[in-house]
Amino acid sequence: MPAAGTLPWRVHDGVLEVALVHRPRYDDWSWPKGKLDPGEEWAPAAARETFEETGLKVRLGRPLPDARYLMLTKTGDRGEKVVRYWASTVTGGHGRLENEIDAIEWLDVAVAHDRLDYARDRDQLRALVRAHGEGTLDTWPLVVVRHAKALPRGDWKKDDQQRPLEARGRERAEALIPVLTAYQISRILTSPSLRCLDTISPYAVWSGIAPRAKRGLSEEGHEAAPDRAGEHVERALERGEAVAICTHGPVMGAVLDALSPRLELVGEGSVEMLERFVEARDENLAKGEALVCHVAGTGDEARIVAVERHLPT
């Protein structure tokens, strides 16, 4: 039984605070969360449920530990419920309580620890506090996207840069809208090839963000100037803005090579992060995949502190 939620956090007067919600049906205090809709991905569900319960729009930050516990299903059987959590920052919203929530409170972490009704909810709080102490809680997303499935090269007799997505690729491009929205991507860099533009355009149209076409992210441009893709990544790291970079499998090595020295391989979860990153690199990402790198700091100080893979279904 999959569900997703967030731990909204802020620093108020120098004190780290988190937002808890109260559910009158259960008379408990917990994190905003809820079940995935049919076909929905985890990250969009976390952002959606937070908004639906609190009226707050949030940008997902680094992932936090899952919660797993047994509960009764509608049929009376016992099943495992899995809830995935993310740290999140509030970026807007009306703040009106909805969807079976009658109270939301911002509390410092000590009070929140005692207020939580379930011991399992303290695992996420401890991870959030630890990240804050390490300086890796305040992050921004750099998302690498491989273009979705295009028509086979052998079936296309015209200029390869004009080769479009096939039907499954167009479906995946639409499915990327809620994924990129959950991280509130505000800048888009893309190869000028049509299959990349077609992959990122649905989100660009939905968000009103004009994609910036970069020849260095195309296969042809990369072949002519192999260093340009890495230069685009470095400039994105200097800028520190939530960004999506859409490119091709043959260019992916250069993009990920520019990111790999920024991996912070210390602390809990670093081994899993490295394994996830290396697996994605070795596969050149799956077509239509979004690799989310959570970056703390900018420029020379930029460090990737968490990595997520959002694969097409």
Rank of each mutant, 00 (worst) to 15 (best):
P2T: 12
P2H: 07
L16C: 11
E17T: 15
L20V: 06
H22N: 03
K33L: 07
G34L: 09
K35Y: 15
P38V: 04
E41V: 12
A45M: 05
E52G: 10
E53A: 12
R59Y: 00
R78A: 10
G79S: 05
Y85S: 07
Y85R: 05
A87S: 08
S88E: 01
T89Q: 10
G93K: 14
H94N: 05
I101L: 06
W106H: 02
Q124L: 12
A127L: 14
G135S: 04
R146Q: 04
A150K: 09
G154N: 07
D160M: 07
A167N: 15
G169W: 02
V179P: 01
Q184T: 10
R187M: 12
P192D: 03
L194I: 07
R195G: 03
L197D: 03
D198Y: 12
I200A: 00
S201T: 09
Y203R: 01
V205C: 04
V205H: 10
A210Q: 15
P211V: 06
R212N: 06
R212S: 12
L217P: 01
L217N: 04
E223H: 14
P226C: 07
P226K: 05
A229F: 01
A229G: 08
V233I: 08
V243W: 05
G253K: 00
G253S: 04
D257C: 08
A258H: 09
S260I: 05
R262Q: 00
L263S: 09
G267C: 11
G267H: 10
K287L: 09
V292E: 08
E301P: 07
A306I: 08
A306H: 10
H310I: 15
L311Y: 14
P312K: 03
